[in-house]
Design a protein around this nucleic acid. Structure first.
Lengths: 138, 138
DNA sequence: GGAGACTACATGCACGTGCATTGAATGCAA
DNA sequence: TTGCATTCAATGCACGTGCATGTAGTCTCC
């Protein structure tokens, strides 16, 4: 982003700043609006969504915590606590996994499914708003 | 991201997840590597860079805290503390702004300029690495 | 000039996050 | 079998962040 940068470095910096701007706009709006109207943070919603999608795959369902961690870009410890919060709110439940008793399966409860369905339209709306009009160069 | 979504919603979700992935990859790497090798967080570096760029504009230099806040996508309070950290590290200094005695000008010290120059190559390298090979769909 | 609205920055506080560690369960090798 | 390295999840801890508030300075309109 200066005359000292190579052309490709400069391009990367431009791209990076655009990425930061879009990410900040979207994640801020998601956090605030999902929080106010559905009591969910951005990551909470993201986790509910993964669980919901998993249920709708023909597989036996039931994801382990670490499976979620990578798709949500959160550390294992953060995810452990996030699941704890969702569980306390009654939106998910932990289930002992008999195959490997170290692992823990996380599943949506009926309340969790409902909450997700309620929140999804707002999530999509915020995305549509922030990803499209956040794009133009200021 | 499901059959319940409209086509454009689905497209937004795909874009959003890609954005999250790229952001996570880059910001993680930046934070870790800049931290280990230069004692700077991602946002710290970003602030130093804005200050450095500002010095190299022909304007009278000297940014106020709030000017930085928007370009760095941080709250005013977060930025106030970040400046505090940088100041304690001797990389920037606060200067009373005589025109408006509420405002505070933030300027790089010589140590700050040096630190920025040292860290920039790594910053560009991490960006090049994470923005290009972070792009392909997993 | 003085009262009140407003702005810029700092700070108390609560909270979510990552790192390092712990405890439990598993797998492998001798 | 016993012993050791590995893996999964939970937890103690420190830290950065946002929100709400406090404090000081400025602006406006009378």
């Amino acid at each position: 982003m200066t005359d000292l940068d190579t052309a490709s470095d400069a391009a990367h910096v431009v791209e990076w700043r655009a990425l930061l701007a879009r990410h900040a706009a979207a994640s801020c709006a998601l956090d605030r609006e999902l929080g106010e109207r559905h009591g969910l943070g951005m990551s909470e919603f993201e986790v509910l969504e993964r669980l919901w999608e998993d249920e709708h795959r023909e597989r036996e369902a039931a994801l382990r915590i670490q499976d979620l961690a990578c798709t949500v870009h959160l550390s294992q410890s953060a995810l452990s606590r996030l699941i704890g919060r969702l569980e306390k709110a009654g939106l998910v439940e932990r289930a002992m996994c008999e195959i490997d008793r170290r692992g823990i399966y996380v599943q949506l409860t009926e309340a969790g499914r409902t909450r997700y369905r309620e929140a999804r339209p707002l999530h999509r709306e915020v995305l549509a708003r922030t990803l499209t009009d956040g794009a133009p160069r200021p």
